[in-house]
Design a protein around this nucleic acid. Sequence first.
DNA 1: TTACCAACATTCATGAATGTATGTAAACCC
DNA 2: GGGTTTACATACATTCATGAATGTTGGTAA
Lengths: 236, 236
Amino acid sequence: MRRRKDDSEQTRNAILDAAEIGFCDRGYAATTLEMISRAAGVTRGAFYWHFRDKAELLAALHARILLPQEQILAAIADPDGEQDPLELLSCAGIEALRQFEVDESRQRMFRIMSDLGTGPEGREVQSRLDGELRGLTRRIMQRARDQGLLHRDFTPHEAAVFVQVTFIGLLGEWLRSDKGFPLAGFGEKLVRRQLAVLRADGGGWADAGGAGPRDPPGRGQAAAQFSAGTAALLPD
Amino acid sequence: MRRRKDDSEQTRNAILDAAEIGFCDRGYAATTLEMISRAAGVTRGAFYWHFRDKAELLAALHARILLPQEQILAAIADPDGEQDPLELLSCAGIEALRQFEVDESRQRMFRIMSDLGTGPEGREVQSRLDGELRGLTRRIMQRARDQGLLHRDFTPHEAAVFVQVTFIGLLGEWLRSDKGFPLAGFGEKLVRRQLAVLRADGGGWADAGGAGPRDPPGRGQAAAQFSAGTAALLPD
DNA sequence: TTACCAACATTCATGAATGTATGTAAACCC
DNA sequence: GGGTTTACATACATTCATGAATGTTGGTAA
């Protein structure tokens, strides 16, 4: 029996870990507090000491993880840069894919939040996050249009939808396929082709190298800004 | 109080309709049999007369609707044709988008099945359907490669994943955005561009008309086969 | 060493959902 | 037109998750 202060934190984390796995495997509603507590090696009494109820547990679970959508948001949120917005979006997205691919905790949380879709608990969180990302992507595309970077065949709305479909679709398909393909590998290829098609100049997609268009200016800057934005949002 | 035989069928359908709306709005687990029965204008007694339990209700709900994945599967299932496999897939997919866009029942069912992801009830159904579609898409791409239609930059696996991401991603994004864009309109544009990029000859995507590549031979045939396949799977 | 508090465990009350058993009125059949 | 079956409604038993109340023990400060 642990009574020291640091052991309390350890218990709390054990509960969070057990909840993450339980919610991911059997769904939020179907996972009982009893199952979570037992899996964490404690009783429900310990659970109610650390959390008020199931909803607060879910919130705490979400608070300790940065979802890929939030990561992208953090990376491209501030509109100060004069850099290529399409490249900024592409760079932030691909980096998010890379980190997602090796972070099982984030993968579980993404699954949990996806399942919460219609449930009354996570509907607002889910749709708020989704709406923010959608709006931001659209503003990015509007800026690309203003700067003459967007191909005339596509409206900003269309371009934003296509990019959104690609990113979220990739994450979902990767998980559904049981990680049946290299996420960052395929993702980078798909995203670069996609962005190249959206570009006014065609992005030079005709060069068959497979690595996509050569680096335009501003990529390094975008990567730097991404890192800063991510670090700012990470829990301490 | 209805006691005639045809009224029984009417009651059963009322329960199915209520369940479809309830499951879609509040999720499968959170929707109670009492709520469904009340919404259908009957009591739980009537429910248990028509269905053994909640799981059988879900199965009946699924049985009366053709999901877009199943529609595509039905359209391209038989490998007899010598027609362009890429065009066949594109045609079947776009037709599925068109029908999905105007069929609210199918939209609800898609939402329900998506939410069922981790739940123990629908996991097998969901993953079986998904696996079939994935496998078929991959065989399509393999055939395209064999016929020299697939661009050398893409492996059949990559091409299959990209197409899968596009279709399923589109449906999901459309629903999440609360139908914030014309599904078939945007979808046709995106799918045609996507398929054009995958083509060995580039698909003529450079012609900026916006309607995508001109019709290759075999399109009409593909459409005809699609209709036949769909009709065969529809409940009678 | 004593008193107190944090960190749990245990027990209990409540409500909610499910499933089953029984009641019943209308329809159907001979 | 009387019995039988159909198509429900009603009532009840059971299970189960939640949350609150209470009990217990180890650490910690005075």
